[in-house]
Amino acid sequence: MTAPLPMLDLKGVRKSFGAIEALKGIDLSVARQELVFIIGPSGSGKSTLLRCCNRLEEPTAGQVLFDGVDILSPGIDINETRRHIGMVFQSFNLYPHLTALGNVTLALRRVLKLPRDDANERGRAALDEVGLAERAHAWPNELSGGQQQRVAIARALALEPKVMLFDEPTSALDPELVGSVLDVMRAMRESGMTMLVVSHEMGFAREAADRVLFMDEGEVVEEGAPARIFEAPAHARTREFLRRVTGH
């Protein structure tokens, strides 16, 4: 029997911006229904790694296999692939000229080509999942940061992705609004979503992650179960980082 196919499988991924090497050959495999957490100082390449997974950044070298298919191969229809890979951004990036529902349904109508009624129905269901069904017709600037980020999550969820990428989803939020977004992420985890999360929410990592990766200077320094990484980091760099973020 062969091992089940990983959902995401990165092999030797490198990314350079001019002379600067942001990713120095990353190997990372995310199993189905796994929640992998990436921590590390700013500039360590976490976000770049995440963005290589749906080719918002083009890797300079290496392979990105999504559900067994190399999404870097020239024949791939990247737009078709991206609808299966949801992404949530630090700054939400909601479309300011569309309502919450409009944000969620745009790709349903333009990528999946659903008729307006079907798209709206599915959009409402997605907003319901993040607890915002009653704000469907609100404009982004009428929503709190936490609500905006949940709409952004619903926008990705509505496409029924196989994996979700989170790029510091709570970093732009006021502290009291963080909880509502983490609740939604927790619920997604429980429903079996595969998730790759870049974040500084150590408490959430400890409680919900299957695995934690510590990245620094474009490399994965170490990885392991959350309890092991947080309580007994093997590497000096990891210890130093954790000491700084947790403040002791």
Binding site: M87, N93, Y95, A107, R110, R155
Partner: peptide, 11 residues
Amino acid sequence: GQWEAARSTGL
């Protein structure tokens, strides 16, 4: 970010 969000949903 508007470009990226839209492209990430497959547009």
